[in-house]
Structures are given as structure tokens and as C-alpha cells.
Design a protein around this nucleic acid. Structure first.
Length: 291
DNA sequence: GTTAGGG
DNA sequence: CCCTAAC
């Protein structure tokens, strides 16, 4: 009888927090349907989750934080960006992914109309594979002075590698990028390998660390595009914002810790801003350099 | 059917 | 928590 006012248990709050981290804020029904949280939240409705999340979002603000214009809005935007980035990064890979953004990919990639109306949307996932195909082609092709895009494209095509329909366009991007990185030598429209072609770089995957990027829009001499960095920065931003929430919710947050938390949030916003800027620029077909 | 916001 | 407008 008296169970109309059920108090939220720590387990429920934890489940909600984890759910938001997985599906993003606003996907209450999804969180509720998720088998991982269904049992903990069996006594809660989607609207309950919304109300609780609203309360939790307001709670850390009453302590005297001077920032009252943030929280849900930016966070949602970050998730959208992360989802888009994830979609761009993953393209078409039904393989099981342990990435925390994998579920988001499914729900958003469909309604954001992924497509390639934006230059950012290539794919960091297949990039190494494409590069490998390029190097393979350049190694095999006889032209000592280098090969043009068509020659490389034809070689890869006859190799019967699995490539998307718009691969020729992607190939052009990859070649320009590799040339910009110094991994290929470009003269006129001919590309050939050099000493740097085979040096392996540390993979930018699985490392949500600090994204040390800075924009240089002053006089960028047409360099790389850096889709990966965009994707990574977006995801990093989203995760940092979530982390902020988790930290804020902890029982006693020491003032020192709270300071660090706020710093984290600001940094995340900065990255997010950069990601947004990158998105804009790239959608206009511009070429952006990240130093 | 869901979600966001006000009550 | 409930109610309601909006999607």
C-alpha cells in the first residue's frame, strides 16, 4: 500500500547511471529494455528514470557550482557526436564490439542518415586496410615514377578486394592523406612509396586518453583530413562528460576532487567545441590540419 | 508509444 | 510521483 513513494536505492541509481552511459540521456525506454538494467529497474518506468535523472543532474549544482548553463544539453550533443563518429568509424561491421558506444551506433546511425554528405564520414576502421591495399598496389605496380589514382584503383579492383561503391573517392582521400603524412611521395598526380611508407604508427584506437589537438586555421597548406582524430575527440568528450556525472554522484566529493571534476568538464567542452568546428569545416569540403 | 517539462 | 503537451 505504501509503496507509491519508492525511494531510489543505490543499485537503481547505479543502474540508471550505467544505462545513461551506455544509451545516452533521453533513451529511457532503451535503458529499461536493456537486459543489463531491466531487473534493477524493474519497478521503475521510463518516466521515472527521466525524473530521477533530472534530480541527479540538479543535485551537484546546489553545492555552489558557478556553472549553471551546462549539463544536459552539452552532454546530449556530445553523445550525438560520439554516435556519429562511431558510425563513421565503424561503417559496416556487424562484428561484436565491446566499445561502450556500440549500442549508440545502432540507434543513431539509422536516423542520422550516416551517408557521406560529409567528408568526415569516411572510416578510421578500414583506413589501415585501405592503406595496406595501397601499399600492396604500389609495391606491385611496375611504374618506377609512381602510379596515379586510376592505376592504383584498377589494381585493387582486379585484386578483388572488398571495397565500398564509392571506393575510388575514398582512395583519393587516402592517397592525399598518406602523401600529407609523408608516407607517400607525390609528384604531379603520381604516388609512390618512400622510406616512411612502412613505419608503423601507434594506433589511435582503444586509447580514450587526452586528445592533444590544437586548431590551426591561419594558413593551412592543404594537409590531412584526420577523420580519426575527429571521431576520437568526440567520443572522448562524451565520455568525459559522463565521467563527470559519475564523479559528481559519489557520496562525498572532496573539494579538490570537485575542482578536478569541473576542470574535466571544461576540457571536455573544449574538445567538443573543436569537434563541432571540425565537423562544420569538413562538411564544407574544406581541408583541415590538426597539429 | 515516448519524451520533456511543469505541477 | 502525476499530468499534459508535443513529437
Amino acid at each position: 500500500m505504501g509503496n507509491q513513494k519508492l525511494k531510489w536505492t543505490a543499485e537503481e541509481e547505479d543502474a540508471l547511471l550505467a544505462g545513461v552511459k551506455q544509451h545516452g540521456p533521453g533513451k529511457w525506454k532503451n535503458i529499461l529494455r536493456d537486459p543489463n538494467f531491466a531487473d534493477q529497474l524493474s519497478n521503475r518506468s521510463n518516466i521515472d528514470l527521466k525524473d530521477k535523472w533530472r534530480n541527479l543532474s540538479v543535485a551537484p549544482d546546489i553545492q555552489g557550482s558557478k556553472d549553471k548553463t551546462r549539463t544536459p544539453k552539452v552532454k546530449a550533443a556530445a553523445f550525438e557526436l560520439a554516435a556519429i563518429a562511431a558510425a563513421a568509424t565503424n561503417t559496416s561491421s556487424p562484428t561484436a564490439i565491446s566499445s561502450p558506444v556500440a549500442p549508440i551506433l545502432r540507434s543513431v546511425s539509422s536516423d542520422v542518415s550516416n551517408d557521406d554528405n560529409c567528408n568526415v564520414v569516411v572510416d578510421a576502421k578500414n583506413a589501415p586496410r585501405y592503406d595496406g591495399m595501397i601499399f600492396e598496389a604500389l609495391s606491385a605496380l611496375p611504374d618506377a615514377n609512381g602510379s596515379d589514382v586510376s592505376a592504383i584503383f584498377n589494381f585493387i579492383e582486379q585484386k578483388k578486394h572488398e571495397v565500398p561503391p564509392n571506393f575510388r573517392r575514398i582512395l583519393g582521400s587516402r592517397l592525399r592523406r598518406l602523401a600529407a603524412q609523408g608516407k607517400l611521395e607525390k609528384t604531379q598526380n603520381f604516388y609512390k612509396m618512400n622510406a616512411n611508407s612502412l613505419v608503423i604508427r601507434t594506433p589511435a584506437v582503444a586509447r580514450p586518453k587526452e586528445a592533444n589537438v590544437k586548431p590551426r586555421q591561419t594558413n593551412s597548406p592543404r594537409v590531412a583530413v584526420s577523420q580519426e582524430i575527429f571521431a576520437e575527440a568526440s567520443i572522448t568528450a562524451a565520455f568525459k562528460l559522463v565521467e563527470v556525472d559519475v564523479l559528481s554522484d559519489v557520496v562525498e566529493v572532496a573539494s579538490e576532487e570537485r575542482e578536478r571534476t569541473i576542470r574535466l568538464a571544461e576540457e571536455a567542452e573544449a574538445i567538443l567545441e573543436l569537434a563541432n568546428w571540425l565537423h562544420e569545416e569538413c562538411c564544407q569540403g574544406k581541408i583541415v590540419e590538426l597539429a
